[in-house]
Design a protein around this nucleic acid. Structure first.
Lengths: 214, 214
DNA sequence: ACTTGCTATATTGTCGACAACTTGGTGTTA
DNA sequence: TAACACCAAGTTGTCGACAATATAGCAAGT
């Protein structure tokens, strides 16, 4: 589903964005009839969209009762980052052996462009840049399950926390250094180290966020 | 969805079992109309069931074309076990800090009962016993995402590989020792070690299966 | 013979209506 | 007043029909 084909695809994306960006507030109930009029599609389409949102753990459904948007909590964020640490650590490990030399070179180039931005003090682009960095490594793992779990599953939730609890970096410059070391480890084809560094990177990121919440 | 409520629930489970147990063969196409007559429900119900199967990566769907059961391959099995290693390793780590003393005691009792079975040479029950062991540790992690990813997502696929490529143990007695050491680490609240041992345990298991396939 | 374009057919996607269920409220009874 | 049964309104679950799309086969042209 790289680009949406069916009405259900488009509705799923639109609804997901509404939730992630906070236009539909966390914890609120999703009425099928209401949404079907809002998006001008039949309830069947809304139902399919909600089912997909349930697979990403963005909504929770109970039979014969309905669907609610998940509630955000510090505990939930911690659990999310535990899973991220685990999966992205493995992704980095696999990337160290499975990425082609060319892909690694591209990754290095991306890092260089980030360095230029950081030097110029553009912390906004760093946000998207960080995401892009992680994307490439996850894709570099060449592991279908890993890729889909992170992209289709966890990343939307991470983004939801980011947007709604309002966390645009900083940690920009230090994150850059961590990225650099990870790329170096991948370049050296050191799977063990790449995993370790990625896990640390995400752990630090979690700690930084936790600190900001308290 | 501990026990099925709606027709979609039941159909999902029935269809899933048919696929996992091999009564519907891997790689084959799923016709909605055909299945709706077979299970005596409407196409809407079949559609929901297929959507759920897609979330567990048991079937793949293409818009306007249809759904196919995934094809099993050695490569696919390896990727699956890489994810398992990552997630269950984290589960063991978290279980070491989050399980209650009582839960750990129960786990020890389970292990003891396995020991008796192994001594008696009942390798059949060991199969279910192994699953049960892993279940408890995953639950012990108390991490919602981890739990649902493994139970709702990966375990059905693992079972599908087990059944269709016909792997009833052995590795029974050695696996028992590994389980014992993991429980010991959890008992000592040694998260680091528990993760390491669980990852090794799954890695060995993967190697054993790979060896059998070649 | 090979390609191109069309048609026929079958399959999936979408819709509106009906059935089953949950929930909150009302009235009755001890 | 408390407890229970029941009813009514609204929501979700399920169904059958129709619309849109893909695929295979055939026909025509080069």
């Amino acid at each position: 589903m790289n680009q949406p084909i069916t009405a259900a695809d488009k509705t799923y994306i639109a609804l997901r964005d509404d939730i992630v960006e906070g236009r539909i507030e966390a914890g609120s109930k999703l009425s099928e009839t209401e949404l079907s009029t809002k998006f001008a599609v039949s309830r069947a389409v809304i139902r399919e969209a909600i089912n997909r949102l349930e697979s990403c753990h963005i909504v929770e459904r109970k039979a014969n009762v309905g669907a609610r948007v998940v509630a955000l909590s510090p505990q939930g964020l911690i659990e999310l980052y535990q899973v991220r640490e685990s999966l992205e650590g493995m992704a980095a490990r696999l990337a160290a052996t499975n990425m082609t030399d060319e892909e690694i070179a591209d990754l290095g180039a991306l890092l260089q462009s980030h360095f230029d931005e950081v030097k110029g003090g553009e912390s906004y682009y760093q946000e998207a840049g960080d995401v892009d960095f992680h994307y490439r490594i996850i894709l570099g793992s060449k592991n279908k399950h890993l890729i889909s779990m992170l992209f289709d599953g966890i990343y939307h939730l991470v983004r939801m926390y980011r947007v709604q609890l309002g966390m645009a970096g900083p940690r920009v410059t230090t994150a850059y250094d961590e990225h650099k070391h990870i790329v170096q480890a991948i370049l050296n084809r050191d799977a063990e180290l790449a995993e370790m560094l990625m896990r640390r990177h995400i752990l630090y990121s979690k700690n930084s966020i936790e600190h900001k919440l308290s």
